[in-house]
């Protein structure tokens, strides 16, 4: 698993309230969800400022993992909100047929474009949040806001949950406060992202299979060089040594297996023979195939 921590903005301590022990404190989001929100935002109705949708995933103690989502049509006019409740219900039913393990954990919104208030959470958000409180399996839904205004040179993603403010037994308002968020991707997702980046900046095409290996080797070489440089400059006294880095280098070196030459030669030759054998077998098979093909072609002629 690779994980990246998001750029957290320091949530103001004034908003911190004493939490009940079961409250969600951390949110993990998968890249697909973000891509989906962005795509949905791009395809929004011309008139509507922002888009919303349902987040699916699972809750494990204090952590919520968001693995999937779908768009829900909605309309806002001033203080009023209309959410496609039937749509949400039907879509959820469809989703459940394909992904049985996911449950509703909250909702997402892209941030509103017009009105220069600069708020990530609009006034109507608490109404929508109330709706999702009824939809989420365990109550206490998560609200994910993807900042698509591009005011800064970044797309920031934030997660919120809400607490009702109760004054003398009367619910007055909802208070949204931020919880920590990280983006995690599984190995295939990481490979997928990598492919997306790579296709974006196409490298000059050469031998397809050799090139990646070459790249990998160059990378390894560079890493080794950096490490060597660091060690050299420490030895020469240019840099003050950092015990932590030193320990890590030592640990890494310790994982390099020491193999005696004769053992290595045996290993080397065994693998070589295996590989050559496989190549040989595949070539024999090809010959047989050609014969089979010819036979098949001559049938019934």
């Amino acid at each position: 698993m690779t994980s990246l921590s998001s750029k957290m903005s320091p949530s103001s301590p004034a908003l911190m309230m004493e939490d009940d022990p079961d409250a969600v404190t951390h949110v993990i989001v998968h890249p697909m969800v973000l891509l989906h929100v962005l795509d949905h935002h791009t395809r929004r109705q011309e008139a509507s400022g922002r888009v919303i949708g349902t987040l699916l995933g699972r809750r494990d103690g204090k952590t919520v993992e968001i693995t999937n989502c779908f768009a829900v049509p909605h309309a806002e006019r001033g203080e009023e909100v209309a959410i496609g409740k039937d749509f949400n219900k039907q879509m959820l039913a469809l989703h459940m047929r394909a992904y049985r393990k996911e449950a509703v954990v909250g909702w997402y919104a892209s941030s509103a474009l017009e009105d220069g208030q600069g708020d990530l959470i609009a006034d109507t958000s608490s109404l929508i949040h109330e709706f999702y409180a009824g939809e989420a399996d365990e109550g206490d839904p998560i609200h994910l806001v993807v900042d698509t205004r591009l005011k800064e040179d970044a797309i920031s993603v934030r997660a919120f949950k809400s607490t009702p403010v109760v004054v003398q037994g009367e619910p007055l308002a909802n208070l949204f406060h931020e919880i920590s968020l990280t983006m995690e991707s599984t190995e295939p997702e990481a490979i997928c992202l990598n492919k997306m980046v790579k296709d974006e900046n196409p490298a000059p095409k050469e031998g397809e299979q050799v090139e990646p290996l070459l790249l990998s080797m160059e990378k390894l070489y560079k890493l080794l060089e950096t490490a060597t440089e660091y060690v050299d400059s420490v030895v020469e006294g240019k840099i003050t040594p950092d015990a932590e880095v030193g320990r890590q280098i030592a640990d890494t070196l310790a994982t390099v297996p020491r193999i005696r030459p004769e053992v290595f030669d045996k290993l080397f030759n065994d693998s070589l023979q295996d590989l050559l054998m496989v190549t040989y077998l595949s070539n024999i098979t090809r010959t047989q195939l050609t014969i089979a093909e010819k036979l098949n072609a001559s049938l019934g002629v």
Partner: peptide, 23 residues
């Protein structure tokens, strides 16, 4: 070939996993 919408491009620029699948 994989292509991306402009917003998605902006996102992956920022969120590209630094972990080395190359190695």
């Amino acid at each position: 070939k994989c292509t991306n919408a402009p917003l998605a491009k902006a996102m992956i620029q920022e969120w590209t996993p630094t972990s080395d699948i190359e190695l």
